[in-house]
Design a protein around this nucleic acid. Structure first.
Lengths: 350, 350
DNA sequence: GTTGTTCTCTGTATCGATAAAGTCCACACT
DNA sequence: AGTGTGGACTTTATCGATACAGAGAACAAC
């Protein structure tokens, strides 16, 4: 049995298709009796209501917005920052009666890009600034909002990562630390080939070494600027997770020349580092200083020095920009704040 | 400037619309040179690729699946069980190149149902068995999978909640507990009006009292059966969260006749209860026994006695059923297992 | 020279609805 | 009788693509 359409109903009731359409969408356009008759008949025929896709085609809108996530969907549900950002994003969307379509984008190969090409949405919000994805979204002529400034005239809701990094770096330098390591997730650019298992934990002895790999992140550049004459080493464990942080922590703590300060680029990484420290009886803020980034709820509980950013607002505003493509301004820089807690302290021996 | 269509391109290149369509979708249907010429031209004209909605209309599929969540989206991102289930669900969908559209359904009023009516998806997976939602999904002729048996011939992937509850109840009874309280989230049926703030924490002195409120959950019935002649009281704090559990715990621990065992219907509720106990110096498993349900990762860390259910599989199988409406069987009962940990012990004074 | 194949490409119908304009008719007013 | 007016529907065109059947040309086989 093929699906019932308005045409079928129109045929049975003996009216035009348009009248059936009006019965469902514009009650004022036909007499109550006829409307009643049509609806009853439609129900009896097992009609499921106006076909959504056809309506979307005609109206040119789908009332759904795509969210491009930098990893598998399970990551989105595990990472506290992502979860909060998504909650914020969904607030205005939900109110507007729109739904959220999640798109995982672990890489920007063609198979994944195809999902972006073929998904039925009115716009995109991207948690990660994959250029290829942005290009596709732009080609489709759909609005999109990202979480990072990109120099162009695209829309974004971000914080000043460089300045935030600089403050962290300056804070650490001011405390007298000379041996500093930065822990960065292996993330940007995503298009890089997946490293092999063994290559996951690499300590780049110098920043140059790290940058030669093709990485460049304003947060890192800011930290380096803040550290001034102190030259940090860099560790790039796997993804952005507590486990990765733990591995990075193990690696750094077990080195011959243990760093006195570890600057992680996210709170979950920092918390992982602290897990490794706890296991070794290394006290945060006394033996080794640790800092994070984001100020997720767990950061406060663990006394983690970090940069607070308004995560929920970041998402909420992105949602509002998506819903209203005319809204101005479309490049929003939100405030951040260095939150100093117990996990950072003077360098030992100062 | 209106959007460029295949028709425009066809006009400019001087071929039929179908040939343009083939250039994009079936390269084998035309000469490579012509295809090249068309694609180049399309690119130059700023064509964004075949319109997704039009294609969906023609093909009758959208390659997106709706997930009905029992609360606001932020809940989905916070609750460990939901997050895990969603991860599982998304596994097969992601592989099939489909995307996931999240629908929050805090109530089944018409405004929320409308989202279900108007969202562009090929099927639904529901984490909560809202009858009205199921009806709408069914009317639309779309496949749907839920997480609870419903007596009919619908599709579901579930566990035997009654039996699981019975085992928990029997376990507690066997330990000699006579004063037992059950902590249930205020969830079913969702269509009930939101209770006022003050009414959130109610202790139903007897089970009858609780059931008179219109509640009925097989998990509860199982527990009662397992407890045999012990008659539990029931607390219904707010939602399914650690905070609710905490409130329920406070309420119960501060009562004149403190229960010796508290059976929570989810791990997060149980962990909340344990938070309240910790604050009062009440030792779990010695002073008061606590049990949960689900066996989320945190449960093991906290030594919580609980019923383990294969959460990830529950989601994964739901996804597979959605993708393949012909797949059999469509009613899958997964195994569960009572996991006894330190949080339950003999009733004091036995 | 005729028939048969293969390769490209076209024309038309279709998907299921909705917007805009048009028809028809009853009723009111002058 | 002549003209307006508004309500209740219908007609036609449109959204933007894809399926299907088949036309026409090039080339091979006999």
């Amino acid at each position: 049995m093929s699906r019932v359409t308005m045409k079928d109903i129109a045929g049975v009731v003996g009216v035009s298709v348009m009248t059936v359409s009006n019965a469902f969408n514009r009650p004022d356009q036909l007499s109550p009796e006829l409307r009643e008759r049509i609806l009853r008949r439609a129900d009896k025929m097992g009609y499921g209501g106006p076909n959504v896709t056809a309506r979307n085609l005609r109206s040119g809108r789908t009332h759904s917005y795509g969210v491009v996530l930098p990893d598998s969907l399970s990551y989105a549900f595990k990472d506290p920052f992502t979860a909060l950002w998504l909650s914020g994003l969904s607030l205005p969307l939900e109110i507007a009666g729109a739904s959220v379509t999640l798109l995982s984008m672990p890489s920007d190969d063609d198979a994944h890009l195809d999902v972006v090409r073929k998904v039925s949405v009115d716009g995109f919000a991207a948690l990660c600034a994959l250029p290829a994805v942005m290009t596709v979204a732009g080609q489709r002529g759909l609005p999109w909002v990202s979480t990072e400034p990109d120099g162009g005239d695209s829309s974004w809701v971000a914080i000043d990562d460089y300045e935030a990094g600089r403050q962290i770096g300056a804070h650490i330098a001011r405390l007298g630390h000379r041996r500093v390591s930065i822990v960065v997730e292996r993330w940007f650019p995503r298009s890089r080939p997946e490293p092999t298992e063994e290559a996951l934990d690499i300590v780049h002895e110098t920043l140059d070494d790290y940058e030669r790999q093709g990485f460049a992140w304003s947060r890192v550049r800011g930290i380096v600027a803040g550290l001034a004459d102190v030259r940090p080493s860099v560790v790039t464990p796997g993804g952005n997770s507590r486990e990765s942080g733990f591995r990075a922590g193990e690696l750094l703590l077990d080195r011959h020349q243990r760093p006195t300060a570890i600057i992680a680029l996210s709170d979950v990484l920092a918390l992982g580092v602290m897990d490794a420290m706890a296991r070794r009886g290394v006290v945060a803020g006394r033996d080794v200083s640790v800092s994070g980034f984001d100020d997720i709820p767990d950061a406060e509980r663990s006394g983690l020095t970090t940069v607070r950013q308004p995560i929920l607002d970041k998402g909420r505003l992105a949602g509002e920009l998506l819903l209203d493509p005319a809204r101005q301004p479309r490049q929003i820089m939100l405030p951040h704040e260095l939150i100093v807690r117990a996990s950072t302290g003077p360098a030992p021996g100062t």
